[in-house]
């Protein structure tokens, strides 16, 4: 019958009139994010970072700048470089997460937020002091150990460096299978030993 298709279409829209709107009223409500969300609030554990700059090397845009001080730590002892500068230029960051994937010591993690708007471009650069001072709410992206521990950057508690375990990924053959216990006897980034538990 001619017109039947039109009537059926009208029926579909009428049925959808009765449904709830699916839009989100953004500033008041937000889409619930999965813990794996790759967001802007990078979490960095200075105690774990050796200053190897793998993250900077694997960044497709080269926006991570790391300056280390070889004298700060005791690298012969399995220690770390002292990280003087750790700038992440968020203005160009696309949150692909390759830096986090590249980190051999699980020191760098993605964060959760996405509202990075500022009035000046310079404010978008995350520096080492901000990374140190930040509350540690790592995203569980590429961190199965955090996922197993049911960490949630949005609602859960902050995760301290000791709690953020390690995952020996088989597809990173060169990565030493270190456990947090071994890590304890290693020099931290500022050069002091931290063997206390």
């Amino acid at each position: 019958m001619y017109g039947a298709g039109i009537l059926r279409g009208l029926g579909v829209t009428l049925r959808n009139l009765a449904r709830r709107p699916f839009t989100i009223q953004y500033p008041e409500e937000r889409v619930p994010q999965h813990p794996r969300f790759r967001g802007q609030e990078f979490t960095w554990y200075e105690q774990r970072c050796t200053g190897c700059a793998s993250c900077a090397k694997y960044c497709p845009l080269g926006i991570i700048r790391i300056v280390t001080d070889p004298d700060g730590g005791n690298e012969q002892d399995g220690g770390s470089y002292k990280v003087d500068v750790f700038d992440i230029d968020q203005a160009r960051c696309m949150y692909c997460g390759l830096c986090v994937e590249a980190c051999p010591y699980d020191a760098l993690h993605m964060g959760s937020g996405f509202e990075a708007a500022t009035l000046r471009r310079e404010d978008l650069v995350i520096n080492v002091d901000m990374l140190k001072a930040r509350e540690k709410r790592p995203s569980t992206w590429f961190r199965p150990q955090l996922e197993r521990a049911k960490a949630d950057p949005h609602h859960g508690d902050p995760v301290e460096w000791r709690e953020a375990g390690r995952e020996p990924f088989p597809w990173h053959p060169k990565r030493p299978a270190q456990t947090p216990e071994e890590m304890d006897h290693r020099a931290s980034a500022d050069g002091s030993y931290r063997s206390e538990r």
């Binding site: 829209t13 959808n16 009139l17 449904r19 709107p21 699916f22 839009t23 009223q25």
Partner: peptide
């Protein structure tokens, strides 16, 4: 408003 509701939106609010 009505058009918004037909389309699963809220319309101007």
């Amino acid at each position: 408003r009505l058009l918004g509701r037909f389309q699963g939106r809220l319309g101007p609010n």
